[in-house]
């Protein structure tokens, strides 16, 4: 479970780094190549940590299976994870909107709008947040058959 928590932290930290790096690419800084490399490296880290955290642990399957194929414990678990993550996702969206409005108002980068990496990250977040909730708070037991 501790390992899953570490993976979750690395996964989302890399996602944040990627967005920051691509933001600087968008701003057209002189050293944009460095930011490009940081952004792409962060994307690779996101992909590499996604596999053990969501795929190999079985969490992705748990949160993306139709409810009729889940048993009562799995249903209760996914219901809890979805309701928790909906709340967090709404807060994250509002914070991003606030940050964008501040960026625009403070004249940091007036032309900056919602970018493609940001939208892609939000789609990724909406799909992985319930699973990350399960990995963080409940863990996955390594039961043998």
């Amino acid at each position: 479970m501790k390992n899953l928590k570490t993976l979750a932290v690395v996964n989302y930290a890399a996602l944040i780094f990627m967005n920051i790096a691509f933001y600087f690419v968008y701003r057209g800084r002189a050293a944009s190549n460095i930011y490009d490399v940081i952004g792409i490296t962060s994307l690779v880290v996101v992909a590499l940590t996604f596999i053990p955290l969501h795929k190999k642990s079985g969490i992705w399957k748990l949160t993306h299976t139709k409810s009729k194929d889940l048993d009562e414990r799995e249903l209760a678990l996914t219901h809890w994870a979805l309701s928790e993550s909906y709340g967090w996702f709404a807060v994250i969206c509002l914070v991003i909107m606030l940050a964008l409005s501040l960026i625009s108002r403070m004249n940091i980068c007036p032309q900056y709008t919602i970018s493609m990496p940001l939208v892609a990250s939000m789609i990724y977040l909406s799909h992985t947040l319930p699973g990350t909730m399960i990995a963080w708070k409940k863990g996955i037991p390594e039961d043998t058959e």
Partner: peptide, 10 residues
Amino acid sequence: IGINFQTVGY
């Protein structure tokens, strides 16, 4: 009994 084997573990 129609459940996941992990649920039996729980």
